[in-house]
């Protein structure tokens, strides 16, 4: 399973960045595939990017909502939200664990042999904050006299834009290098800090910042694909918790197995020696609740 996931991550990272003619032709791909939103975080200004970034596209639509409504056009972000919602309703947050190139990068960085830090759980609310404030409210509400907003998350937060687009384009274009100022310096420092954090903590961007993960996470409990925990089979070996990249502690009832934090990497399913975790596809069944888990394992054991 883990090998399959690794291959999936590599293949999607390559598919999302398959335009290698940028040094000779236009600086970025301009073909029809850019009408599609990539299911993971991948900046569409990356020279090799073949698809559009859903977060960038959503912010652009919201930032130009007022002028478009004034022109009688209903551009409310339905295309992007529909695409993300369709994927989320089928697989929940699975794209985070199987497709996202930035998730792959975080996984690589965490493999570096440096001391590790645990994730401070209150930061888990961060993705919702970034989604509501930076992706929705600021692009909608902070507008210029003509009614145009800005892409706040891309501009002030997104490390994928700096890494995949900013650095390569500045290397390729002297004019852009001259134009780079404090904003690029700020984003570059932010990127370095985040990359350092990624070496110390497992998937910190996914867990504390990523608005795309926040959107997918909302579907984890209502998607066709569901993980199911069988506490009667669990031997409490904690193998699932040891391998979980987002520290979802479901075996003792602390978290729900289908909580929004789960990126559906399915590592818990692979390592469980007693098959206490299964993957199901179909209508949602009444799942084992925390109370049921506590019946098997009293709180003293948690």
């Amino acid at each position: 399973m883990e090998r399959l996931r690794r291959r999936s991550q590599y293949i999607f990272a390559l598919l999302a960045n398959a335009y290698w003619l940028f040094p000779w032709r236009s600086p970025i791909y301009q073909g029809p595939l850019k009408k599609l939103c990539f299911p993971g975080l991948n900046c569409h200004s990356c020279p090799a990017a073949t698809t559009s970034c859903p977060l960038g596209a959503l912010q652009n639509l919201l930032a130009t909502l007022r002028p478009s409504l004034q022109m009688g056009q209903l551009h409310i972000g339905a295309y992007v939200l529909g695409s993300l919602g369709l994927i989320g309703s089928v697989a929940g947050r699975m794209p985070c664990g199987w497709i996202c190139p930035f998730g792959l990068l975080q996984k690589w960085l965490f493999l570096l042999p440096v001391p590790k830090l645990s994730f401070w759980r209150p930061l888990g609310r961060g993705p919702y904050l970034f989604l509501i404030v930076f992706v929705v409210l600021l692009p909608l509400l902070v507008v210029d006299p003509l009614g145009y907003g800005s892409v706040w998350f891309c501009k002030y937060v997104c490390p994928a834009g700096t890494l995949e687009a900013g650095i390569p384009l500045l290397c390729l274009d002297q004019g852009l290098r001259r134009a780079a100022g404090w904003l690029f310096a700020y984003k570059f420092i932010l990127l370095i800090l985040l990359l350092i954090w990624c070496t110390l903590t497992s998937r910190p961007f996914c867990r504390a910042i990523c608005p795309l993960g926040a959107i997918y996470g909302l579907f984890n409990r209502v998607s066709w694909l569901q993980l199911r925990f069988h506490p009667d089979r669990c031997v409490q070996c904690e193998a699932c918790l040891t391998v979980c990249p987002t520290d979802v502690s479901f075996y003792n009832g602390l978290d729900d197995l289908n909580s929004a934090a789960c990126i559906r990497c399915l590592r818990c399913l692979s390592v469980c020696p007693s098959n206490a975790v299964s993957l199901e596809f179909g209508p949602v069944r009444e799942d084992i609740g925390k109370e049921d888990v506590e019946q098997f394992y009293p709180k003293a054991n948690c």
Partner: peptide, 18 residues
């Protein structure tokens, strides 16, 4: 919305790159 998304995605987003 599709042409709008496409138009934005085929031009270099200066905000994204800082």
């Amino acid at each position: 919305e599709v042409p709008v998304v496409w138009n934005k995605a085929i031009t270099v987003c200066l905000s994204c790159i800082g």
